[in-house]
Amino acid sequence: MTQDYKPTDNAIAERVNGIIKQEWIYRMKRPKNMDGAMHILKDIIYFYNNKRPHMSNMMKTPAEKRRNYVGC
């Protein structure tokens, strides 16, 4: 649960976790150790935020969407 107890914030986090699991984690070999797992997750999160277009963002990446908000 989030600090301000907004259930919608938790739903967003769960959606992202589900996407990461479905698109990457379930299709990969298990990492040999925690360092390997952390490296894999960092790469996945970078890709998700900077390379993967999202339909909800009109096929922009989250990073592109944030840059548009800063320029407003």
Rank of each mutant, 00 (worst) to 15 (best):
H54Y: 05
P31C: 09
I19H: 06
G71F: 09
Y5W: 11
R27E: 02
H54M: 02
Y26R: 10
K65G: 00
F47Q: 00
Y46M: 05
K6F: 10
R66G: 03
N10M: 10
Q3F: 00
Y69R: 07
W24C: 11
I25P: 00
N33H: 06
R27D: 03
S56T: 14
R15G: 03
W24D: 02
I44S: 06
K29G: 04
Y26F: 03
P31A: 05
D35G: 08
N17D: 00
E23V: 02
A13Q: 13
R15Y: 03
M34S: 04
I19Y: 11
I25V: 02
K60M: 15
P7N: 04
A11K: 09
K60G: 00
D9Q: 13
N33Y: 06
N17L: 06
Y26S: 15
D43K: 13
Y69P: 13
M34F: 07
L41V: 12
I45S: 04
G18H: 13
C72E: 13
S56Q: 08
R66C: 02
I44M: 03
L41S: 12
G36C: 03
P7C: 03
K51W: 14
N33W: 01
P62C: 08
R52Y: 08
I25G: 06
Q3S: 14
N33V: 07
G18Y: 01
Y5F: 11
A13M: 07
T2A: 01
K60V: 09
Y48F: 10
N68M: 14
Q3M: 01
A11N: 06
L41T: 02
Y69C: 05
N10W: 09
N57A: 13
K29W: 02
I20F: 04
N49V: 08
M28T: 05
I25Q: 04
R27A: 12
K60R: 15
E14M: 01
R52F: 12
D35K: 15
D43E: 12
K51N: 11
H54L: 12
M55Q: 12
T8Q: 15
I25N: 00
E23S: 10
W24A: 03
E64P: 13
C72F: 06
D4Y: 09
T8A: 07
